[in-house]
Design a protein around this nucleic acid. Structure first.
Length: 186
DNA sequence: ACTAAGATTACCT
DNA sequence: GGTAATCTTAGTA
């Protein structure tokens, strides 16, 4: 039985609403190496009106173009010369909005995650670590998460009892916005 | 062409 | 708590 989230999960929500809704959702990646999955525990919203966003001002560039697709695509970017970060696009096509996946609680395939992480103890408690553990890289930028055959997708997860909202991490601009969502209790 | 900054992480004291 | 590592991206000329 597949519990893959349907397109309707992504549509009709603002980036902030989607960021909240993604908490508890299961992120799954099926590859030849094996299957890894984990429950999303931390997200951040980014929009066109947001000085911290890659799409601030609504200007399309080579890097940010995926963020302007309709909701339900994966936006992957490279940062600090070392790490990838992955987002789920939000809002309607033409609007540059997305939700950064910052952390997951590993479910299936933690041995493979650890192998990909070079044996480290912390498997996916940060956006760069998450992408490394899940084998997500630049080739996954623009993947349609809602497509039935996609090996990378979101699935129904756990219900979240309580959520904490805070300022976003690691940004210089718009630090006053409380657009980070963290699972407080399951 | 050149340059500065970056939605991070690991390792050090 | 501080910071080096590392290279792409985007802006400026």
């Amino acid at each position: 039985m597949s519990r893959r989230l349907s397109p309707s999960f992504y549509t009709g929500k603002t980036a902030l609403q989607l960021a909240r809704s993604l908490l508890g959702v299961l992120l799954v990646h099926e590859t030849d190496e094996g299957i890894v999955s984990g429950f999303i525990t931390e997200t951040e919203a980014y929009t066109e009106d947001d000085p911290a966003s890659h799409t601030f001002g609504g200007v399309v560039t080579e890097r940010n173009r995926t963020m302007f697709l309709r909701a339900g695509y994966l936006y992957v970017y490279f940062i600090y010369g070392r790490y990838f970060c992955c987002n789920v696009t939000a809002e309607r096509g033409g609007r540059g909005a997305a939700v950064l996946l910052r952390a997951v609680l590993p479910d299936e395939g933690s041995a493979l995650m650890r192998k990909r992480r070079g044996g480290a103890r912390a498997l996916a408690d940060g956006p760069g670590k998450l992408c490394q553990a899940f084998g997500i890289g630049r080739e996954h930028d623009g993947v349609d998460l809602t497509e039935a055959q996609s090996p990378l997708y979101l699935s129904q997860g756990r219900s979240v009892r309580s959520v904490q909202r805070t300022a976003r991490i690691g940004i210089r601009h718009a630090t006053e916005k409380q657009w980070r969502y963290v699972v407080d209790a399951w």
